[in-house]
Nucleic acid binder design. Structure first.
Length: 699
DNA sequence: CACTACTGTCATAGT
DNA sequence: TAACTATGACAGTAG
């Protein structure tokens, strides 16, 4: 869905939008048609008309730009398409259409061909031709990319797209048979017309299938409006038709609004000034399938082209009721906003959310879910719809994150960012570092588009980028400037359509939403499951990185690098993955570091304890030694006195121990010497020992 | 409300 | 030079 570019001069984006909305069972097509018809200032009015330069991008039926445009543009590129054998040359077609007196000029060759067939009475044929639009267009979004890339190698298709998608394979199979029967015109575009017309036919079929459900939904909406909208209490008291009238008149007031913005009236004048025979409704109706609420079958008569402008706007009511008004009608209309809506239709859709009161409660939005979901499921038998659903729901899921989990202010911020693809630069002011850390290798477009930051979590819009990440590669570097705004606008449109998500989808996607850095702020939004996730895990989820954080961190570097090269990842995803790996490894390193530090501290404490214990032991040993020494001294003292008591001099008298001392000689003999001699001898011996000790110390 | 422990992260130096 | 590790410093959070 990322690849849809609604705001384009050609009808392709519009066709896509119309078809997709029809597939979704929403009666949004006319309103969006009118919105989409409003040309950007730089768009020449003639580009809206059939007679534009065939080489102009506006002429191409593809919603994608020609070669050089952004990726997957090749799918519906005229080149490589088979010509419709029944399609007249474009000049003849135009002449015939004009000759039929159709009150408008079809915008594209497809429209012209359709009008030609219908006005000529071949309603069934036109109906049939219309049908194929959904298949082709949706296939162009999803599965059928590769066949187109073969047909238009210069179309900037995603080179990594699988060449074996089901639709591509089917196209390849049927191509030879059709080539034998085709009568290619000069441009080789006739087959494309045929195919797109067939797609439209399918779109109409789907639309008619959803008619009952749509009416039921509309009735419920109206009932809810009448019951719960205080501003419209009077309307609630009136019969349904009066309520509708009120609604319609309200829209007419919007239409006739006097503000200076680009109104629908301006559009009407703009288109009618150069082509007086053209009517606005004609142009828009040329692209829309049968309107469920119209009295005519829509395709059985050309009368449905004569819907007046106010009727067309009445469908605008349906659009906004379907998109923006919830059953309990907590959403208020803003006439000013609505009046200015035609100027910048998608941004106006954004403006609906700028009012806090206008934020869409998820519970209310889910009223549409069963219907839409069933319709989508019924269509999944088609390969293209498989891919389409994926893309749609990707887009839907992302939007649901914003609408379902953000408060009104954040939603409004999300939608207010005009310069960002996917509204990704919303929160840039909240995190200045995210800008300074942006990879300078990114172009401004990409940075703005992706809100590139090393800290995606700080940017709630990043999860939008996730729509193209993970398993849905996005050719980010192939956008044309013109496609940028369209992409932005178109995403916003589909974001609004995501209001029909299942609650489960909303919940699951709320997990992938990224939140402001403030944890206390986060806790308000995060579920218990989310709260258990680490920041990087939430970031990875937000960007839909198809690897677990644990994998990213623990993987060997070789495997890691090969993994990055194997998967098609956006720069933002790669950056986040590398950041996750770096942070994860650093986290482990920090844990190890702290563990080591704690180990060191514990070891030192243990050493201190051991040393203290050793000190105590030594103290005890010293005390024991001292005690033993004292005992020995005591014993020696006793022995000394005992010996002296037994000694006698030559005259037989006891020896006084205070005057004599015992001296042991080296040969073991014991001498009794006077103490004066022992003292002097001890001094000399001590001196001698000291000298010897000093000499030993030197050695 | 202050304090503390824990944890994640960043910057930087070293391997 | 890239990748990784180690570590100090800082900030946020919970008890």
């Amino acid at each position: 869905m990322k690849y849809l570019k609604p705001w384009r001069s050609d009808g392709g984006g519009l066709l896509h939008l119309t078809i997709l909305l029809s597939l979704a069972g929403l009666r949004l097509d006319l309103d969006l048609d009118l919105c989409l018809l409003l040309p950007p200032p730089t768009l020449l009015r003639d580009e809206l008309l059939l007679g534009c330069d065939p080489t102009s991008p506006a002429y191409a039926l593809s919603p994608y730009p020609a070669p050089g445009g952004w990726g997957r543009a090749d799918q519906l590129h005229p080149k490589g398409r088979e010509a419709d054998p029944a399609a007249p040359p474009e000049g003849q077609l135009l002449r015939e259409v004009r000759a039929l007196g159709v009150p408008f000029i079809p915008r594209t060759r497809v429209d012209a061909w359709l009008v030609h067939r219908v006005a000529a009475g071949d309603a069934d044929g036109a109906h049939g031709l219309l049908g194929a639009a959904a298949a082709s267009s949706a296939g162009g979004v999803g599965a059928g990319v590769d066949g187109g890339s073969q047909a238009a190698p210069g179309g900037g298709g995603d080179p990594r797209a699988s060449p074996s998608s089901p639709l591509a394979a089917r196209q390849e199979e049927k191509a030879p048979a059709e080539q034998t029967a085709r009568v290619p015109d000069a441009d080789g575009r006739a087959s494309e017309e045929n195919e797109v017309l067939r797609e439209r036919h399918e779109a109409v079929d789907h639309s008619s299938q959803h008619e009952e459900n749509e009416q039921r939904v509309s009735a419920q909406e109206e009932k809810s409006l009448q019951q719960k909208n205080e501003d419209e209490n009077k309307t609630a008291d009136k019969p349904d038709w009066e309520a509708e009238k009120t609604t319609e008149s309200r829209n007419e007031r919007h239409l006739n609004g006097t503000d200076t913005s680009f109104s629908m009236e301006d559009l009407f004048q703009l288109l009618s000034s150069s082509q007086p025979e053209n009517s606005v409704e004609g142009i828009s109706l040329g692209d829309i399938p049968a309107l469920p609420g119209s009295s005519n079958d829509g395709m059985n008569s050309s009368a449905h082209y004569n819907v007046n402008f106010s009727q067309a706007i009445s469908h605008d009511v349906n659009l906004h009721e379907a998109m923006l008004l919830c059953p309990d009608n907590t959403f208020r209309r803003d006439p000013v906003v609505r009046t200015s809506q035609p100027q910048e239709p998608f941004l106006q859709l954004n403006s609906h959310t700028t009012n806090a009161e206008q934020s869409l409660p998820v519970a209310n939005l889910t009223a549409f879910l069963p219907f839409v979901d069933n319709q989508m499921r019924n269509l999944t038998s088609e390969d293209f719809l498989h891919d389409l659903n994926i893309n749609i729901f990707d887009e839907i899921n992302l939007m649901s994150l914003a609408t379902g989990d953000l408060d009104a202010m954040e939603v409004s911020q999300l939608f207010q960012e005009p310069d960002s693809d996917s509204g990704l630069s919303l929160n840039s002011s909240h995190n200045s570092t995210s800008i300074t850390k942006s990879n300078t290798s990114h172009s401004i477009c990409e940075e703005g588009a992706t809100g590139y930051s090393s800290d995606p979590e700080s940017l709630p819009h990043h999860n939008l980028e996730g729509a193209v990440g993970g398993n849905y590669p996005a050719p980010m570097g192939h956008r044309s400037d013109s496609g940028f705004c369209g992409d932005l606008a178109f995403q916003h449109v589909f974001h609004n359509h995501t209001y029909h998500l299942e609650p489960r989808a909303l919940e699951s996607n709320s997990e992938s939403f990224s939140w402001p850095e403030k944890p206390e702020k986060m806790s308000r939004y995060l579920s218990d499951t989310e709260r258990n996730l680490s920041r990087d895990e939430r970031r990875a989820k937000a960007l839909r990185i198809p690897f677990s954080v644990d994998e990213i961190v623990r993987m060997p570097v070789d495997s890691f690098n090969s993994m990055l090269s194997r998967h098609y990842l956006t720069d933002l995803q790669v950056s986040l993955i590398r950041d996750i790996r770096r942070r994860g490894k650093n986290k482990v390193a920090a844990q190890n570091c702290r563990r080591r530090k704690m180990d060191i501290i514990l070891n030192l404490e243990e050493d201190v304890c051991n040393l203290q214990a050793k000190k105590e032991t030594l103290k005890r040993e010293r005390a024991q030694c001292n005690k033993a020494i004292n005992i020995m001294k005591q014993k020696l003292h006793h022995l000394y006195h005992d010996v002296f008591s037994r000694l006698r001099d030559d005259e037989g008298r006891p020896v006084n121990p205070n005057q004599y001392a015992l001296q042991y000689s080296h040969d073991g003999s014991v001498l009794i010497v006077p103490k004066e001699l022992v003292t002097s001898g001890h001094k000399k011996e001590n001196r001698k020992r000291k000298r010897e000790g000093i000499e030993d110390g030197f050695h």
